[in-house]
Write a protein that binds this DNA or RNA. Sequence first.
DNA 1: AGGTTTCTGGAACGAATAGTCAAATAAAGA
DNA 2: TCTTTATTTGACTATTCGTTCCAGAAACCT
Lengths: 190, 190
Amino acid sequence: MARPKAFDRGAALAAATKTFATYGYEGTSTEALVKSMGIGRQSMYDTFGDKRALYLEALQHYCFESVGQIAVTLQATGSPLTAIEAALLGFAARIQDDSMCLGVGSVCEFGRRDREVTAIGKSSAASMQNIFAATIQRGKDLGEIPPEIDPKNAARFINATFIGLKVMARGGATHDELRATARMALRCLA
Amino acid sequence: MARPKAFDRGAALAAATKTFATYGYEGTSTEALVKSMGIGRQSMYDTFGDKRALYLEALQHYCFESVGQIAVTLQATGSPLTAIEAALLGFAARIQDDSMCLGVGSVCEFGRRDREVTAIGKSSAASMQNIFAATIQRGKDLGEIPPEIDPKNAARFINATFIGLKVMARGGATHDELRATARMALRCLA
DNA sequence: AGGTTTCTGGAACGAATAGTCAAATAAAGA
DNA sequence: TCTTTATTTGACTATTCGTTCCAGAAACCT
């Protein structure tokens, strides 16, 4: 039983994610995929199935990691309000390449046309709003956030703000513009 | 000099806009275009040039009309604050089909890759932020909006909220959810 | 080393793509 | 009615697409 070279599956998936995020599903050819992943075409088909399966796996993985990253940020900081601020601003600071958030990109490209894509998006958005809602509730308990705020609505609003920031970043907004926008959004919770 | 049937150019462009908004640029085939426009393929090429030119014209027209519509809403209502509310909520109420805002869609699909698409988006976003900023300044003058609000930043924030609402609507959010989100955003201006 | 297994590269396929050409059709003015 | 002209239709080209097949190269294990 030999086990030759074996490329890095995770790295290949990450590369595919970036390519999909940059050019969209329809805008990405299999040739562009194998080139960006740095593996042979046959390896891609053997490892990930086909283009669609690769996209779904990339989307799934991206959303999962994305939610996890936000959750870590939210729990790392003590104050709930500054935690949300850190999440928003931290994101704004992390922008550097011209690739889109794959989650937002999938919603924009497919809408609700594709059942599996929609399912991943729904689940991811639900998780995102849950952790935001929990943090906001924590802020209410601590008196940082006024009691008339409904955590569910506020969480959805924060999510909407995130989406807006991502699209504006994709459109070429500067870090300063994103930061200012994020700070404006935080006023709603104060 | 005869002048035969002559299809409705504006209606054809509107149909193309909707198709592009639903399926994206790469996701729309010329066959889908001519079918949705209700004209022959040759007519399309004669009238609009090629697929790209048609897309650019649709995008341009859509953005222009979009900005105009917002401007009308903002000036129709007396109070600046309720005008912005009307713009946000009015949009949320108008959602019914599953087509994306073509402007947001173009940014998500192309980023800053395409010079002409980028130019249209930039110009449209600038107009949008200008009319929002003017309305917010008016609100400050009337004392409806607190003086510490920077009109430019607030306008950008409102624009970001718009984007968030549009993407959430595309993802299947209900009218109630959109309304609640819009109301949360308005808290920032109060 | 040898053998086994994975990966790569190129060739090939059918389907779909954007765009063009020419003939057929239908409406308006003479 | 007859000509003119915009539109439609279908055939056509060339390219690109996603996918599969196959031969060769490379890496691990014994």
